[in-house]
Nucleic acid binder design. Structure first.
Lengths: 196, 196
DNA sequence: GAATGCAACTAACGATCGTTAGTTTCTTTT
DNA sequence: AAAAGAAACTAACGATCGTTAGTTGCATTC
């Protein structure tokens, strides 16, 4: 039962999901067809169904994989004993890193989640809301302790998350600025807005 | 030849485009069907083609309407005699305002432009690149004049544009924070990162 | 070597897609 | 009232969609 395929140690299912993530990003979930995907995998469309249950299962896998990764990291940060600024910096850096080396996955979780069928859609949105709420709580805590500027936490969370997720439009022209420089500059900009 | 329809002084074509913008945002361009659209307009699908040439013509109209609006405003700001900070504030405020009261249109120009057919796609991307370049020039000019902090202009543009375009995720829960408060807070946050 | 099971294949299903053709209904102009 | 024009309708086109059924090839296990 050796179902190893592809160039690396990856299941065929993983290969499918990886190719799909690229396709979903380029064309959008609705416009990407299973026959398209099959061609990229090097197989007939019907053969995909030996490995996956449906098109939307692929989307579910991607969205929740990303959501879980962010959530796990958030919990680690929450329980760490650091200043609010360090916590926020850690979170911002993770978001940027994820955007840089898991670009396709993060992009889809950010932009294609609308096509999740219920009840996954509600589940996903709940996780998202919860994540933002807890980010806001970290900021509120920092304000209460006088560690950061007295800003509106909700706006700050929105601004920070939007800013990092916009890196996708940088991905398409990686030439001018290197990843490290971009990360450093963006962290600097966003953290500066929090300092007293 | 009075082709006036709808409740206001709007052509049927305008009604179609307005309904379409809502539909494209909710379902994505690829997943929104002409029969869906027709139902919202209150007409049979085939009848739409008395007013529009194709599905993608609708997308083109929306994308370039938004692009032109931003470009016109940028030119006004460029030729104004203000400090760099004031210029940037004006631009940020326009982006936020547009996002608030032309939400559907701006959202589509931001997220569904991928589905533009050539040569419109290239045209649109050129305009976009040009817009960002000129925003960067304003910042560089401000740095050279010593009016703002010495940040990386490219990163700043990316951060600012991403932050404001992320307001779309606020739109769906308008209850907690009012539009004015959000605008004020976001401007404050983003401008603060530019000050010396 | 026979049996087992995974993963590929071909063929096709019903549904839906954007769009066109041809016709009819209604409104406005003469 | 007649003529003209705009905008609605029904019907259907060919294409493509996600997915299922049934079958074949091939490797592993007994």
């Amino acid at each position: 039962m050796a179902k190893i395929q592809g160039k690396k140690n990856s299941t065929k299912k993983e290969v499918i999901i990886e190719k799909a993530s690229r396709l979903f990003r380029e064309k959008g979930f609705g416009a990407a067809s299973m026959r398209d995907l099959a061609e990229h995998v090097g197989v007939e469309a019907a053969s995909l169904y030996n490995h996956i249950r449906s098109k939307s299962e692929i989307l579910q896998t991607i969205c929740f994989k990303v959501a879980n990764e962010f959530m796990t990291n958030l919990e680690a940060v929450e329980s760490s004993q650091q200043t609010t600024l360090k916590k926020m910096e850690a979170i911002i850096r993770l978001h940027i890193r994820m955007m840089l080396d898991q670009y396709e996955f993060v992009y889809i979780a950010d932009h294609e989640w609308r096509h999740l069928p219920e009840p996954y859609l509600s589940n996903f949105l709940n996780q998202r809301r919860n994540y933002r709420k807890r980010l806001g709580d970290i900021l509120e805590d920092g304000i209460a302790k006088g560690e950061i500027k007295n800003i509106d936490p909700y706006t700050a969370v929105l601004t920070i998350l939007s800013a990092v997720s916009g890196i996708d439009s940088w991905q398409r022209s990686r030439k001018s600025t290197s990843a490290e420089v971009l990360e450093a500059n963006m962290v600097k900009y966003l953290i500066e807005g929090l300092k007293k």
